[in-house]
Amino acid sequence: MKKYKTLKEDLEVVKKVMEILPDARPPFSFRIDNLGIESCVIKVKKIACKSLKGNGVNSGLRLVYAYFKEEDRIVFIEMYHKNDKENEDRDRILNNFK
């Protein structure tokens, strides 16, 4: 939150979109496969962040979440900037299902 001052507001927009379209929507988001779990884990590649002026959805922010369709529930797992790390933390994802 210190680095991206508008993140809370930006996430509210993401939540509204996810209420309507919670499943993966390529090329903006996709399912993360080969985790060895049945739950649907999705990575959003393009999140608009007002703190990163001039970049819009090409801000480089990534969001990983689990979508439980039967329960109509979403759990945020991880958010990171693509310059801070290359890929999602699979151990962190799997720890959410223990």
Rank of each mutant, 00 (worst) to 15 (best):
M1V: 06
M1H: 05
M1A: 04
Y4H: 12
Y4T: 01
K5Q: 11
K8P: 00
K8Y: 12
E9M: 05
D10K: 03
D10P: 10
D10T: 14
L11Q: 07
L11V: 11
V13P: 00
V13I: 15
V14N: 09
K15P: 03
K15F: 12
K15A: 14
K16Y: 06
K16P: 00
M18A: 07
E19D: 15
I20R: 09
I20N: 09
L21F: 13
L21P: 00
P22G: 12
R25Y: 11
R25G: 03
R25N: 13
R25E: 15
S29Q: 13
S29G: 03
F30I: 06
R31C: 14
R31V: 12
R31W: 02
N34G: 05
L35E: 13
G36H: 09
G36S: 14
G36E: 09
E38T: 11
E38Y: 07
S39M: 06
S39D: 14
C40E: 15
V41N: 08
K43H: 05
K43R: 13
K45S: 08
K46E: 13
I47L: 08
A48N: 13
K50E: 14
K50F: 12
S51L: 07
L52F: 07
K53F: 09
G54L: 06
G56F: 04
V57I: 14
L61V: 06
R62L: 02
R62V: 01
L63S: 01
L63F: 11
L63C: 09
Y65I: 05
Y65A: 11
A66G: 02
A66S: 10
Y67W: 12
F68K: 12
K69L: 06
E70W: 04
D72H: 12
R73L: 14
I74L: 13
V75T: 10
I77R: 02
E78R: 04
E78M: 06
M79S: 04
M79C: 08
M79E: 04
Y80I: 03
K82M: 02
D84A: 06
K85F: 01
K85Q: 15
E86I: 04
N87G: 03
D89Y: 03
R90K: 13
D91S: 08
R92H: 03
R92K: 14
L94P: 01
L94W: 02
L94I: 06
L94K: 14
N95H: 07
N96V: 09
F97D: 11
K98E: 10
